[in-house]
């Protein structure tokens, strides 16, 4: 996966001038791109010391926190966009964090590796865990504590009354809208809190 092309692909989903919170921001490359090219402001959240240092070096404001401890530091609907790019698969409380994402942000953008991508299916059919460009780890050394599919996410969103505004796959930094569950190594969802009207 070409990192820069992927960043551009995700960045297109973020409206210009947005106030952004990037959960699991890594070295801050996406936020840095959003600041420079889409005039966005905001913070990254990161747990890793080396990544925090990299963010400071690239002028990205970063808050060092363990996401598994929740987002209590951030108020309701205090960001235009909350990004959760390739973070979900590392979290113990993925479901809670998904709800937190749309509590804190008016818009949530979530992406993660799609385990139902066809090469993965073939590998499982052959009796072995997949090792691909997108999931480059062996089963015993992967940092991903969970895997899920494009379709699985739809089910989780439905269960939690989360509104999916848009969803598609990404392959080679291009959107995949036809059969993304089968054809795309990466799943992307644009979500918001379902407003329940009370009478």
């Amino acid at each position: 996966m070409n990192k820069n092309a992927f960043i551009e692909c995700i960045a297109q989903l973020v409206p210009p001038n947005s106030r952004v919170l990037d959960l699991g921001c890594g070295d801050g490359a996406l936020l840095s791109y959003l600041q420079k090219n889409r005039k966005c402001t905001g913070y990254g959240v990161e747990i890793d010391d080396a990544n925090v240092q990299a963010c400071v070096k690239s002028d990205v404001e970063v808050i060092q926190l363990n996401l598994d401890e929740g987002l209590t530091m951030f108020s309701d609907q205090s960001f235009d966009v909350v990004l959760q790019i390739d973070t979900l698969q590392h979290l113990r409380n993925a479901e809670t964090m998904l709800l937190e994402t749309i509590r804190v942000g008016r818009l949530g953008i979530v992406s993660f590796p799609n385990f139902a991508h066809w090469p993965n299916r073939l590998s499982i059919l052959g009796g072995r865990m997949p090792v691909t460009k997108r999931l480059p780890y062996q089963w015993y050394d992967t940092p991903n504590i969970r895997v899920g599919t494009f379709d699985d996410f739809g089910g989780l969103a439905n269960k939690n009354n989360i509104k999916i505004l848009d969803s598609f796959g990404i392959k080679d930094a291009k959107q995949v809208r036809l059969l993304p569950n089968l054809r795309a190594p990466t799943a992307v969802f644009k979500i918001e809190k379902q407003i329940t009207v009370k009478d």
């Binding site: 963010c55 400071v56 404001e61 808050i63 926190l65 530091m73």
Partner: peptide
């Protein structure tokens, strides 16, 4: 320290926070 950081974030101020182990 996180209380200070939260108050700054609430005010949309520029802040970086590191928790050194």
């Amino acid at each position: 320290s996180r209380e200070i950081v939260k108050a700054l974030i609430d005010n949309k101020r520029s802040v970086t926070y590191a928790e050194i182990d």
